[in-house]
């Protein structure tokens, strides 16, 4: 039982008699498997647990079975040129102090980097030698020499990296951007080839990078003009000929239709419609009222009329 990996096995188990049919065998295996899973479940539920809204949570013990590594061990880097040379000469690497006493200034300074020992900037005077050429600035000469040494070291470093890449000892994330030589961890991978389109683009750019935009350049056999990548603005003709279809009319009609359909709800005046509806309803109600009164109390009507008439006469 290995609870850390949630794994259980029964090394003592063996079939009494190997079942003849495949079906029987799988059933027997499943039965044994169920037993083992049940054992794991029992062990897990026996562990001390903490309560959680989702249910009890159990911390598993560290796994006891050691599993093999997924990937092979990294290969050792091949020795650099200096390491080979040092081995041949018997030169041993030994640690040096980070801080060194600077005799020029009489202080302790760093061995490398900013404000370091024996910095060229700190040397105010250089003694002239017999071998010095007249008219040469000794300070700039020192600077140039230093630059050369740095460049040489950079070259060596890249060379060593290439060797290491060839041996397949570099991790794939180490890329040599400086040399434009893509180095990947695997051996067989060749640097990516430029695609046809990329090449065409570059060729097109180079072809048009002259004063005439490449118009008067000599063309190689089979060379095509660079494709125009941008979009040309195209307008309809100012005046349409007789044989031409009326593109402009179509365009106008299309936009007009869009505008009309967009604002067709504006053609209905809601307020006006509501007031008209209300007025109609009121009229209907009045009519119904009149009808009711005339049917229910027909006697009252003539009286009213007579009253009105009489009042009018009086005036």
């Amino acid at each position: 039982m290995d609870l850390g990996n949630l794994m259980a096995s029964d090394p003592t188990h063996h079939f009494e008699s190997v079942p003849s049919s495949r079906f029987e065998l799988t059933r027997a295996c499943l039965e044994k498997g169920t037993e083992l899973v049940q054992a794991i479940a029992n062990a897990v539920f026996a562990l001390p647990s903490t309560d959680d809204p989702d249910g009890p949570i159990v911390r598993l013990p560290p796994p006891t079975t050691t599993l093999p590594r997924e990937k092979h061990l990294p290969k050792p880097k091949p020795p650099t040129k200096w390491e080979l040379f040092a081995k041949m000469k018997g030169i041993n690497k030994h640690k040096k102090d980070k801080r060194v006493f600077d005799e020029q200034t009489g202080t302790w300074k760093r061995r490398h980097g900013y404000d370091r020992v024996n910095d060229d900037k700190d040397i105010p005077i250089i003694e002239a030698k017999l071998s010095d050429e007249p008219g040469e600035d000794p300070f700039s000469k020192r600077k140039a020499e230093k630059k050369q040494r740095v460049e040489k070291q950079e070259k060596n470093r890249l060379q060593n990296l290439k060797q290491a890449a060839k041996a397949g000892a570099l991790p794939s994330h180490v890329q040599l951007a400086a040399t434009a030589l893509p180095i990947t961890g695997t051996l067989g991978e060749a640097p990516k080839k430029a695609s046809k389109e990329e090449l065409q683009n570059v060729a097109g750019m180079a072809a048009t990078a002259t004063a005439s935009g490449g118009k008067f350049d000599k063309k190689l056999p089979g060379e095509k003009l660079a494709k125009h990548a941008g979009k040309y603005r195209k307008f309809l003709p100012v005046v349409e000929g007789k044989g031409m279809s009326s593109q402009e009319k179509q365009q106008t009609a299309k936009i007009l239709d869009q505008l009309m359909s967009k604002s067709c709800h504006g053609m209905l005046d809601v307020n006006k419609a509501v007031t008209m509806f209300n007025v109609k309803k009121e009229k209907q109600r009045k009519k119904e009222k009149e009808h009711k009164t005339s049917s229910a109390a027909s006697k009252l009507k003539p009286k009213k009329k007579s009253l009105k008439k009489s009042s009018k006469k009086k005036h």
Binding site: P237, E248, Q251, T252, Q258, L259, M260
Partner: peptide, 27 residues
């Protein structure tokens, strides 16, 4: 030159505010 689609739409929208559906007659 004739107007392109975007320009025509801009002009018609402005005119439509004043003329309404009469724009069709005008065009």
């Amino acid at each position: 030159r004739p107007l392109d689609e975007k320009e025509t739409a801009a002009v018609f929208e402005k005119l439509f505010k004043f003329t309404g559906p009469n724009l069709k007659v005008m065009v």
